[in-house]
Design a protein around this nucleic acid. Sequence first.
DNA 1: CAGAGGATCGGCT
DNA 2: GCCGATCCTCTGG
Length: 182
Amino acid sequence: MARSLIGSILVRRLPDGELLTGRIVETEAYEAGDPSSHAFRGPTARNRSMFARHLHAYVYFIYGTAFCLNISSEGDGVGAAVLIRALEPLQGLDAMRARRGAAIADRDLARGPGRLCSAFAIDRSLDGSDLETDEELWLAAGESPANIGESVRIGLTKAVERLHRFYVRGSRFVSGPRSLSP
DNA sequence: CAGAGGATCGGCT
DNA sequence: GCCGATCCTCTGG
């Protein structure tokens, strides 16, 4: 699912009705039994959305500064999700810039999991949303790119060797060190 | 109840 | 490239 989400469109409807859209260009998989996954030790108040049926949002707060968006990926009761790590902004760039900063370049608006949540006004209030029925956050079909790269995941201390990060090869909207996204 | 650590970011060198 | 900010969550006693 982490691979197949590359190229899909994330859509956010703001409280004022404005639509923000972005193309998913980078994801990471956190599968069942993965020691680096928040779900590894079982369900808690924070991570329970990871155990929801597929296509539910799991949003968490990290380092006291940033939110991160995941999409649950398995059946009811199985803790697994895909972290959305970067978007190519398509629609609503001015509204994103209003949240991220007036001088932020297009490429930096949603490059990184915390930045994309800031740009798209995603926080814990959207945790648990069903993306198949929700009116504030959902997915739309997009073209799957021809060339999808894969690498180790970013920022982990456990299970660092797994090749569970996927990205659009050649896209300047992908986060992380260049050495990981050749 | 205290303490440690984290799927990050931005600023500075 | 390195470092600190900042606070929520989970763990262990």
